[in-house]
Write a protein that binds this DNA or RNA. Structure first.
Lengths: 137, 137
DNA sequence: TCTTGAACCTCTAGCCGCTAGAGGTTGTAG
DNA sequence: CTACAACCTCTAGCGGCTAGAGGTTCAAGA
């Protein structure tokens, strides 16, 4: 049985965040001590590790909620879990693609400015008018 | 003189967003009609285009606020504007690097699951235990 | 056994960048 | 002159926490 602080130390998830996960239904309500303090089992520790890892991979609270449910039900987990993970993979790839475009554009804008500050500022100039952009965004 | 709706149409920024920008100090308070409706000048149109473009590049409201001020003051814009843009470029690059790690990890997890669903679900299995991860996150 | 004081409790509000809705007023075309 | 779209202000909500107020409990040392 761990206190919330000990659970926090062991998982690296901050105390208020653990309470937030409980409030949003991601963590089960734990037992309480005589004085109303939370007392966690090893199972709760494992669940929180799972959540933390999935969050680190960028999955939403909702997605993780689904995965937690699937994990608890060995009858039908695999296909649905796979779908959630691969949908997320697509989303991550889309975000990478978009950020790469931004990177190119910013590089161009910053590079112009490096080339010499004659007259007006080219950073501000580039930002002011989309027509000077190399690509869409 | 444009109404807020016309400004919205011309810039592609939604009406409530324009009001939000005004409230947060990014757009100046415009003139008003006799009946208290906003009336925008061409200068306001240009400013909003600037803001929209900078937002599309992912700059924060605060950063854009600074840039707008710099743009209005031709005495000292270039170096500071450059600093803001290149700091943002670094941030974008860092985000790309992080997302690429996630992509690799997710690909691995999803790939495992594709390889065959024997016994337990490997997606859930991989999420449950960080030790199976190829890299840090 | 008593006393600290760190850790815990609940509740509320704030962060960013919008978005949505209620409930009321104005502008404009027919 | 009427109808109705567009406008107005105000408040609240989204996700995923984070911070603070104000009060209680636990555990170690004297």
């Amino acid at each position: 049985m761990f206190s919330i602080g000990e659970l926090s130390r062991r998982t690296g998830v901050k105390v208020p965040t653990i309470r937030y996960y409980e409030q949003s239904g991601l963590m089960e309500q734990p037992e309480r001590s005589a004085g109303n303090q939370r007392r966690y089992s090893v199972a709760a520790l494992e669940r929180l590790s799972f959540i933390r890892h999935a969050r680190a991979l960028g999955l939403s609270i909702d997605d993780i909620g689904e995965l937690v449910e699937l994990a608890a039900d060995p009858e039908r987990p695999c296909g649905e879990a796979h779908a959630i993970a691969s949908a997320h993979l697509s989303a991550v790839r889309a975000r990478i693609a978009k950020l790469r475009k931004l990177e190119r554009e910013l590089k161009r804008i910053v590079g112009l400015s490096d080339a010499g500050c004659l007259g007006e500022c080219s950073v501000i100039h580039s930002l002011a008018d989309h027509r000077y952009c190399a690509s869409e965004h």
